[in-house]
Amino acid sequence: MNIRTPAVAGQFYERSPEVLHHQLDKWLGACPKFESPLRAIIVPHAGYIYSGKIAAEAYSYVKLQSEHFHRVILIGPSHHFYFEGCAIPKAEIYNTPLGDVPIDKEAVRELARHPCVQVTDQPHAPEHCLEVQIPFLQSTLDEFQLLPILTSHISPQELAMLIDPLWDESTLLVISSDLSHFHSYSEAMAIDQNSCLKIEDFQPDLAPEEACGCTGINALLQLADKHGYQLERLHLANSGDTSGNKDKVVGYVSYLISAV
């Protein structure tokens, strides 16, 4: 069986299952009630010491509605490879220190029919932006299948067209993205605040300089606007807030997207 093994366990997050469980259980504590049906989240993908608590705020709400979700479409930007379109893995299993998650082979076959989709393990093998989300999903959902999608040279419109037919009520859409990179603290705050205003105004024109996962966010904004969904910002911060070093920071935000 083809298994995608962890690439960044012990670097971006704890390798020990016991330590990882303890950390995530602590972060995924009680959160306010949320009555609206959750449809998607936007979460950061840095190392857990930098952005884990910010991501956990969104995943706490996923945990509240976990019985509704049996599949996760997980989208993030390829950091190591540039290619046309987007990439889904050949692998059948996605493994982390917390165990195995089955990849939705039927959805893979469906997407593989599109010319802008590549089925290849290569860009997935070293990629952190999807992997860091999996332990959160394993800690908040029961049994689920995963559809991991890495974006490269693909338009938000093409990506939205691919995922919309698969995004049913039992499917959670997770967009993995950080915000601005390596500005001073004050510059990053201004850039990221403006990016959030765009998101909250459903303007699907974020640039890579504003969010490394802009393609996924822009596709989500198009679909959320089409379906009449609402957004709620949970937490905007940057690595200067979480690490204390405010020289060259990376921005992070978490959002909930829900049906009215």
Rank of each mutant, 00 (worst) to 15 (best):
R4E: 04
P6I: 07
A9Q: 10
Q11T: 14
S16V: 07
P17N: 04
H21P: 09
D25C: 12
K26E: 15
C31D: 09
C31S: 12
F34H: 15
F34C: 11
E35K: 15
S36Q: 15
S36A: 15
L38D: 09
R39F: 12
I42Q: 08
I42H: 06
V43Q: 09
H45K: 10
G47W: 09
I49L: 11
S51E: 11
S51H: 11
A55M: 11
A58C: 12
Y59P: 11
Y61K: 08
V62M: 12
H68R: 15
F69C: 09
H70S: 14
I73L: 13
L74Q: 02
L74M: 08
G76V: 03
P77F: 02
H80Y: 14
E84G: 13
G85E: 01
C86T: 01
I88Q: 00
K90W: 05
I93L: 09
N95W: 11
P97Y: 02
G99A: 05
V101Y: 02
V108Y: 07
V108D: 08
V108C: 13
E110I: 14
L111A: 01
L111I: 00
R113T: 10
H114S: 08
P115Q: 05
C116A: 13
T120P: 01
Q122N: 14
Q122T: 14
A125S: 11
E127Q: 03
H128S: 08
E131K: 05
V132K: 05
V132S: 03
Q133S: 11
I134F: 06
P135M: 04
S139Q: 14
T140S: 12
T140H: 06
T140N: 07
F144M: 05
L146V: 04
L147H: 06
L150M: 03
L150P: 02
I154H: 00
Q157F: 10
E158F: 06
A160G: 09
L162A: 03
I163V: 09
P165R: 00
D168Y: 00
D168G: 07
T171S: 02
L172G: 03
I175A: 02
L179N: 00
H183I: 01
Y185H: 10
Y185D: 07
E187V: 13
E187A: 14
M189V: 14
I191W: 11
K198D: 12
I199M: 15
E200W: 12
D201A: 15
F202E: 10
E210R: 08
C214S: 12
G216L: 05
I217E: 05
N218G: 04
N218E: 04
A219C: 00
Q222K: 12
L223Y: 04
L223P: 03
A224L: 00
A224I: 01
K226N: 08
K226T: 09
H227F: 11
R233A: 11
L234Q: 02
L236S: 04
G240E: 04
D241P: 08
G244F: 07
G244M: 08
N245W: 09
D247C: 12
K248H: 14
K248P: 10
V253A: 15
V260G: 09
V260N: 14
